[in-house]
Design a protein around this nucleic acid. Structure first.
Lengths: 256, 256
DNA sequence: AACTGCCATACTGTTTACAATATATGCAGT
DNA sequence: ACTGCATATATTGTAAACAGTATGGCAGTT
């Protein structure tokens, strides 16, 4: 319903001001120390799903302002790493069981594609990097649980890097984080995210450029992770309650 | 800093407050009208890459406050739909040529997986929805360019929905947006995002549960989009300048 | 006439204070 | 002793004012 505008008013696509937004240091909020801190804390399971992230606490912990914290939390909420509830605050995201399964399925898709591309693009430096990492993982101190978690995560990151696609890499990172949250929510306590034996096999298959084998191994690896989690009925007590109430058919506002 | 409370000694909460963040209306910022408005404006190419998104302008346009606008822009920046440059403001994201290719590759991966799952999960209601949409697309008014863009986008969304994976659906949405930006940045002017003839074929193959054929058709469809864009040398003039300066090795802060 | 440097303006980013909401505590009542 | 209500506290959300930075125009100079 555009009104008649006989003048030369431009009601067509916006191109007022040919600005030049490029060539300026586009330092993203991803590099923010608060964001990175929370991200690594989550991936290392120092922060568990459902944990409250109070603004004042974080501000004093990081020695910064509340606004800064709010920006960081908003960013993490956009990435579904934290959940923001109006007037309640921010909490570490706790995926539902269905979402957890969807996350695993999506990660399978992404990482299989990453292996596919990685095998195709594998070159000298890629092989070197992969070998170096496998060496690290073989020698690492298994008692340092947090370093272990970082290392095993790094393997998947490295594979995504070898795929040579920055967008795919970012998606991998995102889904790994959310996978970590899914596992933390539904795991049997204490187990690592990755079964420790799978990475050498996958790495070897990639190095041998056995694409079908590497893809199969990666898919199996992720499926194995997925099978290690269970619905955990008591996880979200409140959801259970609402489920019960739904069964009964009771509503708080009876008149509505 | 808790004051001395010598009364009850339940001041030993090693577990930092077992809060219950669930069961509260988690209305995301995705539903925000500002976010949705900018999103649809971008997907319909009313907003072109590089367009400035001034905070005051948007605030008065949407009849809201600057704070609200800032939150929306921050969210869109997290999703790489807008680019925020310090002290300069927010602009519609303009991907580089390399990033555009990566986006297409990632979208291929996601949408092929969506087709795969959609064929597996196809049921009565899915078939009905697909047929209904194909009917719509067949009858739609090709003169209404904006409606056309929305409809063709809706086809891909529908396929992702049929896959039955919410995470995959969100990724599809995100990559479609960014694909739209990539096309808008590097297109020959005036062409639609999707070649109009491909959707009926893909839809028919899905309805026939011809998985291999549907996957092939979808992959081909996206590759065809990809081939329609070109590097556009003069796109980022400023980057060329910085490249020159990098060659020379000059830095603005010589003393540093 | 073109270029450089300066100044006015507009916009973004940050700080501050305040208001609204949820949570926790204490008290009264049954 | 437990339940329900009222108050108090803590935390989040919002508004307005302020400061810092980039942009555009103007004058002065070569």
């Amino acid at each position: 319903m555009k009104r008649s505008r006989p003048l030369k008013r431009k009601t067509k696509p916006v191109e007022p001001k040919r600005v030049e937004p490029d060539a300026v240091d586009p330092r993203s909020i991803d590099d923010d120390p608060v964001v990175q801190g929370i991200l690594t804390a989550v991936s290392q399971k120092r922060l568990k799903p459902g944990a409250k992230l109070g603004e004042d606490k974080l501000a004093s912990a990081f020695g910064t302002t509340r606004i800064h914290i709010r920006q960081a939390l908003a960013h993490l909420a956009s990435r579904k790493v934290v959940m923001q509830i109006p007037n309640r605050g921010a909490f570490v995201y706790r995926p539902s069981w269905e979402e957890a399964q969807d996350i695993f399925a999506a990660r399978r898709v992404i990482e299989v594609a990453a292996v596919d591309a990685a095998v195709d693009r594998l070159d000298k430096s890629g092989k070197a990097a992969l070998k170096a990492h496998m060496e690290l993982e073989a020698r690492h101190d298994r008692n340092d649980r947090w370093a272990s978690l970082s290392l095993t995560a790094e393997f998947h990151i490295l594979v995504a890097k070898l795929a040579g696609n920055r967008v795919l890499l970012d998606l991998s990172r995102e889904l790994m984080l959310r996978t970590s949250l899914a596992i933390a929510t539904f795991e049997q306590p204490g187990e690592p995210d990755c079964s420790p034996d799978a990475h050498p096999d996958i790495g070897a298959l990639i190095l041998a450029r056995d694409k079908a084998g590497a893809i199969h191994a990666m898919r199996h690896h992720i499926e194995e992770m997925e099978q290690r989690i269970q619905p955990k009925e008591g996880a979200d007590e409140v959801d259970e309650l609402t489920a019960i109430f739904k069964e009964i058919g009771a509503r708080s506002r009876a008149g509505a």
